Amino acid sequence: MENQTPRRATPSSPTQKYLLAYNALCLALWSIITLRAILLIPTLTALGQLESLLPALFPLLKWTQTIAMLEVIHAVVGLVRASPLTTAMQVASRILVVWVVLDIFPQIVVKTNIFGRPEAGSTTGPIAFAGILLAWGTTEIIRYGFFVWKASISERVPEALTWLRYSTFFVLYPIGISSECLLMYLALAPAVEQGQGLDLLLKAVLLIYVPGSYILFTHMMAQRRRVVKGKGKST
Rank of each mutant, 00 (worst) to 15 (best):
Ser83Cys: 12
Leu61Pro: 04
Met69Phe: 15
Thr15Gln: 10
Thr10Leu: 08
Gly78Ala: 11
Val77His: 04
Val72Gly: 05
Tyr22Gln: 13
Ala68Thr: 07
Thr34Arg: 02
Glu51Asp: 11
Trp30Pro: 11
Leu85Thr: 05
Thr66Phe: 09
Trp30Lys: 04
Pro59Met: 07
Leu57Gly: 11
Ala68Arg: 00
Thr10Phe: 08
Phe58Met: 13
Leu54Ser: 02
Leu70Phe: 08
Ser12Lys: 03
Leu39Val: 12
Leu54Arg: 02
Leu50Lys: 01
Leu54Trp: 07
Leu20Val: 04
Trp63Glu: 06
Ser12Asp: 11
Leu70Cys: 05
Ser83Tyr: 03
Ala56Thr: 03
Leu57His: 14
Pro11Leu: 10
Leu40Pro: 01
Pro59Leu: 04
Met69Gln: 13
Leu85Met: 12
Thr10Lys: 12
Ile38His: 11
Ile32Ser: 15
Ser31His: 05
Glu51Lys: 00
Ala24Leu: 13
Ala28Asp: 07
Trp30Thr: 08
Leu35Gly: 05
Leu29Asn: 05
Asn23Met: 05
Leu44Ile: 00
Pro42Gly: 12
Leu19Val: 13
Gly78Asp: 12
Leu79Val: 01
Ile38Lys: 09
Lys17Met: 11
Ile41Trp: 01
Ala68Leu: 01
Lys62Val: 08
Gly78Phe: 00
Ile41Leu: 03
Asn23Gly: 07
Ile33Ser: 07
Arg81Ser: 15
Leu27Asp: 05
Leu53Val: 03
Leu57Ala: 02
Ser12Glu: 12
Thr45Met: 01
Gly78Tyr: 01
Ser83Glu: 14
Ala56Pro: 03
Ser12Pro: 03
Leu79Ile: 03
Arg36Ile: 07
Gly48His: 06
Thr34Glu: 10
His74Arg: 00
Gly78Arg: 07
Leu57Ile: 04
Leu54Val: 00
Ala56Ser: 07
Ala21Val: 01
Leu50Asn: 06
Glu51Met: 09
Ser13Glu: 14
Tyr18Ala: 07
Met69Val: 15
Ala37Ser: 11
Ala46Asp: 13
Leu20Pro: 09
Ala68Phe: 00
Pro84Met: 04
Ala46Ser: 11
Leu35Phe: 10
Glu71Asp: 07
Ala46His: 12
Pro59Tyr: 06
Gln16Val: 06
Ile38Ser: 11
Ile41Glu: 01
Ala37Glu: 04
Lys17Tyr: 06
Gly78Val: 02
Leu19Ser: 08
Ile32Trp: 14
Thr10His: 11
Ser83Thr: 01
Ala9Thr: 02
Leu70Gly: 08
Pro42Leu: 03
Leu25Ser: 15
Leu47Ser: 06
Ile73Thr: 13
Lys17Asn: 14
Pro42Lys: 07
Thr64Glu: 03
Lys62His: 15
Pro42Met: 02
Leu19Phe: 08
Ile41Ala: 06
Glu51Ala: 06
Leu70Asn: 09
Ile41Ser: 08
Leu85Ala: 15
Thr10Trp: 12
Val76Ala: 13
Ser13Gln: 03
Leu50Ala: 09
Gln65Arg: 04
Leu35Met: 05
Gln65Met: 14
Thr66Gly: 14
Pro84Ile: 01
His74Tyr: 12
Ile33Lys: 03
Ala28Pro: 13
Pro42Thr: 10
Pro14Gly: 04
Leu70Glu: 09
Leu19Asn: 08
Val80Lys: 00
Lys17Leu: 14
Leu44Asp: 02
Leu29Trp: 00
Glu51Asn: 05
Leu35Asp: 03
Ile73Val: 11
His74Gln: 15
Ile38Val: 14
Ala24Cys: 05
Gln49Lys: 14
Thr45Glu: 09
